[in-house]
């Protein structure tokens, strides 16, 4: 067991980083918005952390700075984005990521162009990442049970109905988009701390596909959805026996198949299963009581 853990240390660490990115996608999907802005903040915080790291800024300060910057930019983007609806909002977030991609590739003096920034110290190990994931997951689970979380839950089911009971859609979306930006920034920063590098690939199309694979596969029914999604995504290369270059294709197929056949994702299936078990237990309890009722 111990040697197994040591052997797959990198994979497990990366899985925890992916989980936070998945959380970031998840909080915004839950309010019925398809946004890829998370990847933008993942990139901004990643490059910010990598650049700051070159000047030996203390890691905790870098995390704080990354959270501050992505929070502020996230709020600004959210204020712009909530004026739009549905697909237009999606379009703006994609444009945001595409623009960042152009900036990263062209601003070579700072970002290192397509090569990126290499050879940074590793600041966080697998256990540190696990701790961060647990803290974030617990906070998210509490948030979901709280007033805001329940309000956002209702948005996913029926926007009109939610509005009719006095839930402010605009405000909930701003909250969710900002929270998503914070988590995306945190994930991007931790990614650099774990791998010790930031490359231009991390802004590109394949991160968008990764992030979508996680949330679609895991589903947005509950906080453990993205956890499942990230766990599967991290182990996908190990599970697939064939070469890495077909990974994107496999993920693409997964996204389409899950959307068509199980739109609720893994978390939705688990919830339905749990509900089914609960219903069965209830009915079996009823059956056991029935004869007593008759005899009485």
């Amino acid at each position: 067991m111990i040697s197994w853990l040591a052997y797959y240390d990198d994979v497990i660490g990366h899985m925890f980083v992916l989980m936070i990115l998945a959380f970031s996608m998840y909080v915004v999907m839950r309010v019925g918005v398809f946004s890829v802005a998370s990847i933008g903040f993942w990139a901004i915080a990643g490059y910010g952390a990598a650049i700051a790291d070159q000047y030996d800024v203390p890691p905790l300060l870098i995390v704080g700075g990354a959270l501050l910057v992505s929070g502020v930019f996230g709020l600004l983007l959210a204020l712009l984005a909530v004026r739009l609806s549905g697909l237009s909002l999606t379009m703006v977030t994609i444009a945001f990521v595409l623009l960042l991609q152009v900036i990263v590739l062209n601003w070579e003096d700072v970002t290192g162009g397509s090569l990126g920034i290499f050879g940074l110290p590793v600041h966080i190990g697998t256990y540190g990442l696990l701790a961060v994931v647990i803290v974030v997951a617990v906070l998210l689970a509490l948030y979901e049970r709280g007033r805001t979380g329940r309000a956002q839950d209702s948005l996913l089911h029926d926007e009109q109905l939610a509005q009719s009971v006095g839930i402010d859609i605009r405000r909930q979306r701003i909250v969710a988009l900002t929270l998503s930006a914070l988590l995306g920034g945190l994930a991007g920063c931790l990614n650099v701390f774990q791998t010790g590098m930031m490359v231009s690939n991390e802004v590109g199309f394949h991160v968008v596909v990764d992030a979508l694979t996680m949330v679609i596969l895991g589903g947005t029914a509950a906080w453990y959805g993205p956890v499942i999604g990230a766990a599967i995504l991290a182990w996908l290369p190990q599970m697939l026996s064939f070469a890495d270059e077909w990974r994107l294709a496999v993920q693409g197929v997964i996204i389409v198949v899950v959307l068509v056949f199980a739109p609720q994702g893994a978390a939705g299936l688990i919830q339905r299963l749990a509900r089914g078990v609960a219903a069965k237990r209830r009915s079996s309890l009823l059956k056991r009581r029935e004869p007593q009722d008759v005899s009485a």
Partner: peptide, 22 residues
């Protein structure tokens, strides 16, 4: 249906890009 369809199109795009890349 709009959001799932947009997400599904990313999936298809991913397949095409992987094919072209190979």
């Amino acid at each position: 249906a709009e959001l799932p369809m947009a997400i599904a199109s990313v999936g298809v795009s991913s397949v095409l890009v992987a094919f072209a890349n190979n």
